[in-house]
C-alpha cells in the first residue's frame, strides 16, 4: 500500500523522501565551504576509475542524462550526504548496472568482500506517453511567471526552493528534452527552457540585499502570472 502526503511516500513501512536529498538549494545547517584554490582533477586513481565506469555503464545501458542523475538522487540520504562526489558516481554506475542486468548485487558484494550500497528504487511510474510536443515558447524575456508548486515522486530539474515563487524571465534558451520524462522511460518530450530571475527577497524571508538568483527552468515548470 502506498500513500503520498506532504512530499513523503510511505512504502512498506519505510519513509522515503521524494523531494530528494540532492536538492540542496537553501538548506540550512551546513558549515563553511571547504575551499581550496586548486586541486588535481583526480586526487586518487579510484576516482578516475569511478568516473570512467559510469561512462561505460551509461553507454552500455543507453541511460539518458535524466536517468543517470536520478540514479544518484535515489541514494539513501545519509549515504548521499556522507559520500564524496566520486562515491556517488560509483553508486550510480553500480545501481544502473544492476538495474539493467549487466551485473548482480550478489556478484558485486562477493567481489568487494562486503556490503555494496546501491541507490533506492525508482518511485515514479514509467512514463509511456510523453504528451504533446510543446510548440512555441509561451514566455519571453520580461514576462512575469510563477513556478508550479508540486512534488513529483520521480526526477525533476525544478529545484524545491523556487517552487511557488514568482520571477521574471531573463532569457529564453533553446528547446530541450524534459528531464522528468526522459528519466523514466524511452519517451521524450522537448520544451523551451528559460532563465528565470528571482529576487532573493522573494525566495527567502532572510534574503540578502541586492541579490538576484537565476534558475534555468523548462516551460512546463512555469505558469503565467
Amino acid at each position: 500500500m502506498r500513500c503520498v502526503r506532504r512530499g513523503l511516500a510511505v512504502r512498506t513501512g519505510r519513509v522515503v523522501p521524494v523531494d530528494g536529498i540532492h536538492d540542496l538549494g537553501g538548506m540550512q545547517g551546513f558549515g563553511a565551504v571547504a575551499h581550496s584554490p586548486a586541486e588535481p582533477a583526480f586526487q586518487q586513481r579510484w576516482q578516475a576509475v569511478a568516473r570512467a565506469l559510469l561512462v561505460v555503464v551509461a553507454v552500455a545501458v543507453q541511460a539518458s542524462g535524466g536517468e543517470f542523475r536520478h540514479s544518484i538522487e535515489r541514494m539513501e540520504p545519509a549515504h548521499y550526504l556522507t559520500s564524496s562526489y566520486y562515491e556517488r558516481w560509483l553508486t550510480a554506475a553500480a545501481t544502473l548496472a544492476v538495474e539493467h542486468g549487466l551485473v548482480t548485487r550478489a556478484e558485486l558484494e562477493a567481489r568487494a568482500g562486503g556490503r555494496f550500497p546501491l541507490s533506492g528504487p525508482v518511485l515514479a511510474p514509467p512514463v509511456a506517453d510523453a504528451g504533446p510536443v510543446a510548440g512555441q515558447p509561451r514566455f519571453a524575456a520580461g514576462d512575469r511567471v510563477r513556478v508550479r508548486e508540486w512534488h513529483p515522486p520521480g526526477h525533476t530539474r525544478c529545484p524545491r526552493y523556487v517552487r511557488g515563487k514568482a520571477g521574471t524571465v531573463a532569457r529564453a534558451d533553446g528547446t530541450f528534452s524534459v528531464p522528468d520524462v526522459e528519466a523514466h522511460g524511452t519517451a521524450r518530450r522537448h520544451e523551451p527552457t528559460y532563465s528565470v530571475r528571482f529576487d532573493a527577497a522573494e525566495l527567502w524571508a532572510d534574503g540578502q540585499h541586492g541579490v538576484w538568483v537565476h534558475v534555468d527552468l523548462w516551460d512546463s515548470y512555469l505558469e503565467p502570472l
Binding site: 576509475v49 569511478a50 561505460v56 553500480a94 549487466l102 551485473v103 567481489r111 568487494a112 555494496f116
Partner: peptide, 25 residues
C-alpha cells in the same frame, strides 16, 4: 574495493575498452 569490484565485473563482460580509464584520466 567497490570500485575494483565493478571494474573487474564490467571488464570480464568486455564492456571496458582497453586503455579507456587511462584516456579519461
Amino acid at each position: 574495493q567497490r570500485v575494483a569490484a565493478l571494474e573487474a565485473l564490467l571488464t570480464e563482460r568486455g564492456l571496458v575498452p582497453e586503455g579507456f580509464i587511462e584516456e579519461i584520466t
